[in-house]
Design a binder for these strands. Structure first.
Lengths: 343, 343
DNA sequence: CTGAAAGCGCTTACAG
DNA sequence: CTGAAAGCGCTTACAG
């Protein structure tokens, strides 16, 4: 069933060279190292290329210099407010660098990264950005064996074994927890996603737990609830919680869960924050507009995405020594309407 | 600053051939047309490839057969619930087809599509999916000149000039409007995004307007409000509206705007649906979980994404006659809690 | 079923 | 500053 695509009229470097009256070597230089081509020659080449509607075949060049101008991005999910801003800013910034984004999602299943990485390597990516620090050995080895630079994004850990750009999830967890504790809450529930293979969720939870411990509070086991990543699940679990044994505050592992929790309170006619305080983590699009506005800690997703794009391009161009590329992006806490002092 | 990436230890087809004791031609066949290679030979080659950790260079093959195994996807925005499910399902399905997604967003600016398409063509995409039917001539010509198949996704129009897979936005607009009219509402406001260069929004609005006209109702000019694409803007504009001159129903161009409108009602203490009915279009993730649940018409985004992936792969493999590839995906109306009969 | 050889569209030392 | 030529890692007729 395979067909061979015709080149049709599409002109190549040969046609451009002929029209400009130069060799193909000079045409190539005019694009890649314009400073090495005499002004008038360059102009003639550019005109010829324009007239013919020439579009370079970068993949042909890749064969030679090993750069495809393509960067891989693997996220846990696309269908979720969590990474939307990150993906958008990362890919837009790459376009500014004349790079293109090859995107894939692993569906929160790290085993999926093996075939994805293979698929990306077959397309000769110049570098790759992976969300988080939890990854299997195999894909990491496949990448480093081929000298493909890796950047981990979203989570920042000082002792990370791969260069990372992101925020301190540990700190995010403790910030919101301390806020709740400072408001005098003692009966607190945690609504956190599964932490296996998810360093972001794990660090947040650890940070939250540590803040609890530091305060001397003792949180009973049943107050630590594992909750799926979607609004509907969070809403259902929270309604159950409200019916069984409502706490005075709920600390949510992210804003998506917090949104579900707030909807649950609406559904059960429990006023937020009068009867119950709710905090999220992330500050996703829409969190500030909710009623009540969600108290949360902001991950500056666009900043992280942009930085990561700059860094991965830089790494691919210069070769790299991982360590100096790690960067911590500060968090911002927003005290909006969804929490209040316990009275 | 350019460095040359070493191949390092990464084995190529030559090494695999040597280890398997065959020619590189046979190795190539074993991957591309396995049925042409004798069983035992194939096994030896597969073992050799595995042992060496061989990863094909598809870009080298592209040079010859013109297929990169890469498909472009241009959406108006990534940072938005609107296209999240579409992107996720499209790219996941492409991965099943052993294709990879090159993603880019145009920020609702069609002029951006020229550099984006150029960038994708330089990477030798095998096909491209574009959201909507409004596009400039230039990028479309660039693509068809190079025989790159195009599929328009999200909007379906019978007389579209490019093959399209999506739902009837016209119908979506009329469905929600008729629902509101059937509930007895007469004082209705429209909250629609800018319709220039946006066929989806335009069709929805036309469908809504037609339903209004068919009912004999006369909608005053000031009831037709243009509203930005984000929750915050929608909330602000709706609050203004509620203060100035509240209608009994608001028809929103999409669920994002509807979400903002509902939050505005919460903020102004106007109960939905008791005092005001609100409908959206789209049924994005989260719309069913809101309080009240959003009455809206569902675009089956995952179905569209999956279908589009199948079709574009098919088009790239078989050559194509555009017309038979168009497909209309039915809408589903959900009457949830945000609307009620006027009394 | 398998191999030797030409060639895909570029880039890059190497000369000049 | 420019050109002729080799070569990047594959695929594909063409022979055998």
């Amino acid at each position: 069933m395979k067909r061979k695509r015709s080149r049709k009229g599409a002109p190549g470097i040969v046609e451009v060279a002929a029209r400009a009256g130069v060799s193909i070597a000079t045409v190539s230089r005019a694009f890649n190292e314009p400073e090495k081509v005499r002004g008038p020659t360059r102009v003639r080449i550019e005109e010829a290329a324009n007239d013919l509607g020439y579009i370079r075949d970068r993949m042909a060049g890749t064969l030679h210099n090993r750069f495809s101008g393509t960067i891989g991005l693997i996220v846990p999910t696309i269908d979720n407010a969590i990474f939307a801003e990150l993906i958008e800013s990362f890919s837009a910034r790459l376009l500014d660098h004349d790079r293109t984004t090859l995107i894939a999602s692993n569906g929160y299943d790290l085993a999926q990264e093996v075939p994805i990485v293979r698929s990306l390597l077959e397309r000769r990516i110049d570098g790759i950005a992976l969300v988080g620090l939890d990854h299997e050995e195999v894909p990491l080895t496949m990448l480093s064996q081929r000298d493909v630079p890796i950047i981990s994004i979203w989570n920042y850990q000082q002792d990370a074994t791969i260069p990372c750009i992101g925020s301190d999830n540990h700190q995010a967890g403790s910030i919101v927890t301390e806020h709740i504790l400072n408001l005098g809450h003692k009966d607190i529930a945690f609504l956190f996603p599964e932490t296996t293979n998810n360093d972001r969720a794990r660090n947040r939870r650890e940070g939250a737990m540590r803040a609890i411990a530091a305060s001397g509070l003792n949180l009973p086991e049943e107050r630590i609830i594992t909750c799926g990543y979607n609004i509907e699940t969070a809403k259902r679990i929270t309604r159950q919680l409200l019916n069984d044994n409502p706490p005075t505050a709920i600390i949510c592992g992210n804003d998506v869960i917090a949104r579900g929790a707030i909807y649950a309170c609406h559904a059960e006619n429990i006023p937020v924050p009068e009867k119950i305080s709710i905090v999220g983590i992330g500050d996703f699009t829409g969190s500030s507009s909710m009623e009540p506005g969600l108290t949360t800690v902001r991950f500056h997703a666009r900043k992280i995405g942009k930085l990561a794009a700059d860094v991965i391009v830089n790494m691919s161009e210069t070769g790299f020594d991982p360590s100096p590329f790690s960067q911590k992006v500060d968090l911002s806490f927003y005290d909006r309407g969804s929490t209040r002092r316990l009275n």
